[in-house]
Design a protein around this nucleic acid. Structure first.
Lengths: 154, 154
DNA sequence: GTTTAGACAGAAAATATTTCTAAAATAGCT
DNA sequence: AGCTATTTTAGAAATATTTTCTGTCTAAAC
């Protein structure tokens, strides 16, 4: 496990909220020199603590308004069936997340589409055509209460 | 709705995967001048299509190994109870996501913690102490099949 | 046919990143 | 504690990038 001091944690918090801050701005907030900030960031990148830097796109602005959580049961649970299903579901661009989970259902998917009609098409022509699918259960997001990518480091 | 041409969509795709590319690199990929790339990005930022730029932290590298999905029922569904619950759950740093959803349960939470012992403490001393909580049902992530922030624009 | 607005390219200016050198702080060892 | 090796840090200099500016081109409107 990579040891992080409180400066690293503060730095990661800043970068998780806004990665476009300059090293000078960060150096002020952290009371460090620009080079010290630079070296710390490079180290965190090298170690893989910082996975990558990305732009977040606002779903509503690109006409993706309907978020659905789909729970899925497979018909069988052989290794072959699982890997087949997983590789197929990964290909679906509407599926943002897919986790193999414990409990009554095997998988939990987060699906983002334009509207109900697109979700219907997604279900009919994509999800339910996957091999070895048993039953599915969909839950629609009524309201986004919290949605963050920020991991709190303690 | 903001009209996006195919160049905008390609640009957004690049930035959603890696926002640290220089405008020169992007200009090569898009066959544009640096200025054209610059202006397009500024427009997308102005319009709010690009929400923000962030660093993604690898959970395993910071010792957050257990991902749990919690479904929650409230005891009542008055406006007062909902907003109270929502403001309290938003405060919990272990809760990365919380959606008000349709179906048997009212809320779906994505919770990230170090291990089972930390999850137990989260349940006992945080989640189940929230006001108006009825029943909860937890599902543990066995395997991360897919987990992306990239929205596919068509 | 002229005008106007938007997108684009290239150059210049302003900023930021990255490298380099050396000093300070830290950790490990005797 | 005292010494040494290693890491972290700061400041300056070198690179690279972003941002601004100017002018051209194109397409749509009049």
């Amino acid at each position: 496990m990579i040891p992080l001091d409180s400066t690293d944690k503060a730095l990661l918090s800043y970068l998780q909220h806004n990665s476009k801050q300059t090293n000078k701005e960060l150096s002020n907030k952290l009371n460090l020199s620009v080079t010290a900030v630079y070296e710390r960031i490079k180290k965190l990148e090298r170690e893989g603590v910082i996975q990558k830097y990305i732009a977040l796109v606002e779903p509503e602005k690109v006409d993706l308004e309907l978020l659905v959580f789909c729970q899925i049961k497979l018909t069988q649970h052989s290794r072959e069936y699982l890997t087949k299903f997983e590789s197929e579901v990964t290909q679906l661009t509407e599926v943002l997340e897919c986790f193999h989970v414990s409990g009554e259902y095997d998988y939990l998917l987060k699906v983002l589409v334009k509207d109900m009609e697109h979700f219907r098409m997604f279900m009919v022509s994509k999800l339910t055509t996957l091999q070895h699918i048993g039953s599915t259960q969909s839950s629609f997001s009524i309201n986004k209460v919290k949605n963050t990518t920020v991991l709190t480091l303690s």
